[in-house]
Amino acid sequence: MEWPRLLSDCDEPGDAGSHLTRRGFLAAVGAAVVAGACRREPPPFDTSSFAVPARSAVGLFAATSYGIDLADVIFRGFKELGVNVAGRRVFLKPNMVEYEPGTSINTHPHVVAGTAIACKRAGAAGVVVGEGPGHRRDIEYLLATTGLYDQLKDLDVRFVDLNHDDVRVVPLKSWFTGLREIALPVELLRSDFVISLPKLKTHHWAGMTCSMKNLFGVVPGAVYGWPKNILHMHGIARSILDLTATVRPQLTVVDAVTAMEGDGPIMGKPRPLGFLAMGADLPAVDATCARVIGLDPLKLAYLEPASHYLGNIDERRIDQRGESLARYTTQFDLVPSLQYLRK
């Protein structure tokens, strides 16, 4: 018997939506996990392909502004967390959505550049940056206005437009969406060390966007359209799970130097936090970031299911490195429909 085909989890347009709330999704997933365990139903992933580590390290590293030497902060983070990119073909996946001066929508180009420099310093065989914005097709506009193109040119790092790259259809490694395969960009598939570089933001549909939601950007728009509506139609939370299980980034570096609160991921307000979060366990990093901004990780629809196969979200199983959680813990503004996410 299969796990129940879960209903949609939010009401994004094209998110078949509106049938079930996020709370409903969470309850349904939780029930499915318990029921699955009781009835010995197979979970919607190959259990032999996943193993949640006994403990996970998450680092919070002070970065008071984008003007400091971020490469140094990130390189020290690599050492602290035992990250080894030597000889690897590293793929950096920042979050670029829109551009509007005075906002904090995108991963800051200095965080992208700093990570690229740190990877080179740590012996990476190559570094490529790629993104497939979900709203704007015009990557030239985004590269020019954000300043990212100039940063990368100076570093001799290539940018790949993931919306328009060649694609290969690959099997999904979990099937919460009900989909069995997806087309992914070949440049991403060729790499052997993926680093998710999100901006920490509230998200009016998903609750929060961080290292896992950031992977929506690897789905090619030229195949699935703008926005990446196939993901909404199959449920945002479920899509986050299946994409994370399939791409399996080896590391995340979260831009929380200036985050976004309120009506994110686009119309929210900049909120300076002053740190970079890093870790190899993406659910652990997302759960930690959720705690920092005053959200209960267990109430984020994608995190509880993730804890069954992708990583740890229980803080008792997370080893805090760098700065203390308490130093940064705060309460982010939330749109009214997300108030239930508060701790």
Binding site: D11, P13, G225, N229, I230
Partner: peptide, 30 residues
Amino acid sequence: VRLEQATALRQDNSLQAWPWIDQTFSWVEP
């Protein structure tokens, strides 16, 4: 696809114009 009205959105979700691909919503470019 035709969708139920969503209170968060100011648009008519009943209008079925063109999607990028089958089984998705209607968008401007297609």
